[in-house]
Amino acid sequence: MRFVDFLIPETLDEARAALEALGDRGYAFAGGTAFQYVSDRPGATAVDITRLGLRGIDQTDGGFRVGATTTLTDLVRYQADGWVLDRVATRIPTHQVRNVSTVGGNISRLFPWSDLPLALLVLEGGVVISDGEEQTHAALEFFTAQPLNRFGHGDLVTAVTLPAVSPPLGFGFKKENITNAAFALMTGAAAITLDGERLAKVRLAANGALAVPQRLTAVEDALEGRAADPSLFAGAVEDGIGGLDWRGREGMSDEFARHLGGVILCDVLEQALQAAKGEAE
């Protein structure tokens, strides 16, 4: 994307007003690290939203509220009980990109390599959008289509919310790529809530080998209510992922993408189960 003009507002209201006035020509611009992948539109104007006080992580009742312009590096460096986004953010290359790339940017425009949406999907996080007033949307609803399409002119993501993760809730995340800086061949995330020896709730999502982040409800449904036994995972995954549109990247075949998808999904389910049981990895 090449811009012809830029604005640097200092308050959220100013930014929203500018974006509203610009309409289709206005682009909320934070870290900007993905704009090289966005196709040009004539007359585009960048509205810098990094100075609106939207950066920072707050602990809330049972979870976290992460400001939209919080950088990925902030996610990596933050430490608190039940905080898991550091594990996701550290696998988003590279350090220079993590230093400027923001949570809002990572979730507002979905790419095959978008990672944070997976975590929000399985942890059933929320996305806070301001159209003057803040409204929280469930992640599942937010990510069912390209999120930008649901924004009105002037609407801005101001924060995301997610729960603190501790047993009996466990989280698993894994990304497979050719090099550490490469885009994902396959990324998987899982969250498991245990009820004694049963899988009370299973949330599973994949990206990288799919076109956009997706919850894998067929696998979830097959596992929920069953015994907390990792030997059940492979079968449920195998039965539940066949109908998806697996896409091989980096010269890999679709067949391999599907295979890799299955392996990684089992891995993240095992990680999540272990964490749900309170066992160290």
Binding site: T94, I178, T179, N180, A181, A182, F183, E250
Partner: peptide
């Protein structure tokens, strides 16, 4: 998309 190894690899 053409990958070379970094320190991390």
């Amino acid at each position: 998309d053409y990958h070379i190894h970094s320190l991390r690899d």
